[in-house]
């Protein structure tokens, strides 16, 4: 009988949900699958190569850093690698991908103490590193337009401007092009459709709530409609243009919702989303750069602890304010 054995004694609860960091990260990878698929359909096999290099580098660098044999481990390095690829042009030089992806893992995450301890979104740290180091490859005016289903074509040979960099270019695209993703841009940012499918999956699995994406996208829409100058058909359509063009959808659904680097309180999450939207639009409308998603999210990451501190929820039956 088992009775003679000493039983395990531990603090309640005695049952745990089956969810783990690995299962959460795997869910994020599943969410990114339609986005990755669309990237390959739009930008060809070079997009696939970029993603593979980025993911492999991230997993390898993390495994080496942690001296672990299991290179998938908790899955977070794969997520960082894939997200980093999503914010690259479709066919950057391979060494740029390697350096950026390694920087994402090392500077973005491991120097802070690894998973859970990093302040900034690792994939965006990687992007910021290559953006300031090799701006020429990342500039908004030399980006390849998509050539849907043209596998094997040398995408890099053709260049064009992203819609945010050039308004004249922008109005040549229909809103439906932006929705499907048939516009120049980063690998994973162009197709709002694919991003939404993955976002719905993450919502359904309980890994994101409406506050960050809603606050972010809502703010971008309102700012775009009010201050966008109505160049894209009319004011409302210009608001929608700002939501669908560039990296807002990718940022709002996958980057600004990164668990580690964003607030845990419900009010804090909404403030975070609105803040990201505001900064993105400040940069887009009045800044020097054509696009502001990366810096908006990184800046908001920096103030996340302060946001959490000021938005401590009122406890059940409580009357007092924040701690």
């Amino acid at each position: 009988m088992g009775m003679d054995n000493k039983m395990i004694v531990s603090s309640s609860p005695h049952i745990r949900s089956i969810e783990s960091i690995q299962s959460v990260m795997t869910d994020v990878l599943i969410a990114l699958f339609p986005v990755a698929l669309m990237a390959v359909l739009l930008f060809g096999y070079q997009a696939l190569i970029t993603m593979v290099i980025s993911v492999a580098t991230a997993m390898l660098v993390e495994a080496l850093w942690l001296r672990k044999r299991d290179i998938y481990n908790d899955g977070s390095a794969a997520v960082t690698g894939l997200l980093f690829a999503m914010v690259l042009p479709p066919s950057p030089p391979w060494w740029l991908v390697v350096v950026g992806s390694a920087a994402a893992i090392i500077i973005g995450k491991q120097v802070f103490g690894g998973i859970g301890y990093n302040i900034f979104n690792p994939a965006l740290v990687g992007r910021a590193v290559v953006l300031v180091s090799w701006g020429g490859y990342m500039a908004g005016n030399i980006w390849s337009p998509p050539q849907p289903f043209a596998f094997g074509a040398d995408v890099a040979a053709v260049t064009g401007a992203t819609a945010l960099a050039d308004q004249g270019e922008a109005i040549q695209y229909k809103l439906s092009d932006f929705f499907i993703g048939n516009v120049p841009g980063c690998l994973g940012e162009t197709s709002a459709l694919a991003l939404l499918i993955g976002g719905i999956w993450l919502y359904y699995r309980g890994h994101i709530d409406w506050r960050i994406p809603g606050g972010y996208i809502g703010t971008v829409f309102i700012m775009g409609a009010v201050f966008g100058g109505g160049f894209y058909d009319n004011h409302l359509m210009t608001g929608l243009f700002h939501v669908l063009a560039g990296g807002v959808m990718l940022g709002a659904l996958y980057m600004a919702t990164d668990m580690v680097t964003t607030p845990v309180t419900p009010a804090g999450r909404l403030i975070f989303g609105i803040g990201c939207g505001l900064i993105t639009m400040l940069i887009r409308l009045w800044g020097v750069l054509p696009e502001g998603v990366t810096y908006a999210i990184l800046l908001m990451n920096a103030v996340t602890p302060i946001i959490d501190n000021f938005t401590v929820p009122k406890q059940f039956g409580g009357v007092n304010k924040s701690a």
């Binding site: 959460v24 998973i115 309980g206 668990m259 845990v264 929820p313 406890q315 059940f316």
Partner: peptide
């Protein structure tokens, strides 16, 4: 246990709205 990944699931599940 692993480090907290700040997923906020504990915050959202707390019936008395604690962190």
């Amino acid at each position: 246990s692993s480090p907290c990944i700040r997923c906020a699931k504990c915050v959202d599940s707390c019936p008395v709205q604690l962190m």
